[in-house]
């Protein structure tokens, strides 16, 4: 789940960090992110309208998210409907096996990639410009990662900047084991109640919240995260 505190001041941010530190969390280091918003290029017209229209009447979005805690990885979301995870590093080059996603060795060895990959956001920006135009770049800086409840609860906080202008404090909350039976996970009321107790317990400042998922029957960590960013960082 994500919360964006738009009226955050240095005081409220410090206060929140102090409160969290009092819970004696495991501090897992710093992080940041890059979030890009692309809109469909209006000069690309659906074929059935090509004879009558000079620009496309529809508006669709493509978002890309690159969090620094997922190295070499870009998550993308198109039309808030379909998501993909892109990697630029091959497993055998990674050295360690702890990366969540990597290009399998076989994919390189059998010749499917040259091994010299571009991050997906720059691929879109360079070669899919006829379909997608880049509109906004949002950066997260000065982020902290806190682990609580023996690693079951993770808070990631970050200052949000749109083209260099401060837009608020982002609080990303991740619960690994919710204690909710799998059959009830798609019940939005259950999820809402769970986060409400956490918000109260850790006295999280008020802000815009989002816990939408792409498909409640099949949760997808990366795709759902990108969906929540797309709603929260919608300035």
């Amino acid at each position: 789940m994500m919360i964006l505190v738009q009226n955050a001041t240095p005081e409220t941010i410090l206060l929140f960090h102090d409160q969290l530190s009092n819970e004696l969390p495991n501090i897992k280091g710093k992080w940041g992110f890059n979030f890009k918003i692309f809109r469909n290029n209006h000069f690309s017209v659906p074929p059935e309208l090509a004879d009558t229209h000079s620009s496309s009447p529809e508006t669709t979005f493509l978002h890309t998210l690159s969090p620094s805690y997922m190295a070499h990885t870009t998550i993308t979301l198109i039309n808030r409907k379909t998501s993909g995870v892109f990697c630029t590093s091959v497993k055998e080059e990674n050295g360690s096996d702890d990366a969540l996603y990597a290009i399998p060795d076989k994919h390189l060895n059998l010749g499917a990639t040259t091994g010299l990959n571009d991050p997906f956001d720059s691929f879109v920006h360079q070669k899919l410009q006829a379909a997608w135009s880049q509109k906004q770049i949002i950066r997260g800086d000065g982020g902290q990662i806190y682990e609580l409840q023996n690693g079951n609860l993770i808070f990631r906080t970050s200052n949000v900047f749109l083209h260099g202008i401060f837009k608020g404090l982002l609080i990303q909350i991740e619960i690994l084991d919710t204690g909710i039976p799998p059959a009830k996970l798609s019940d939005i009321n259950e999820i809402q109640a769970l986060f409400k107790t956490i918000i109260q317990k850790y006295r999280i400042p008020e802000g815009t919240t989002c816990y939408d998922v792409l498909n409640a029957k099949h949760l997808d960590t990366c795709g759902d995260l990108a969906l929540q960013y797309s709603y929260i960082l919608n300035f």
């Binding site: 039309n79 379909t82 630029t88 990639t113 997906f120």
Partner: peptide, 23 residues
């Protein structure tokens, strides 16, 4: 080049790679 390693869609009953290309 850019390499897709995982895909997912909210559209039921369609392969998410084909849906991804479509979108």
């Amino acid at each position: 080049e850019s390499t897709l390693v995982h895909h997912h869609t909210s559209v039921d009953g369609k392969d998410s790679m084909l849906q991804f290309l479509d979108d």
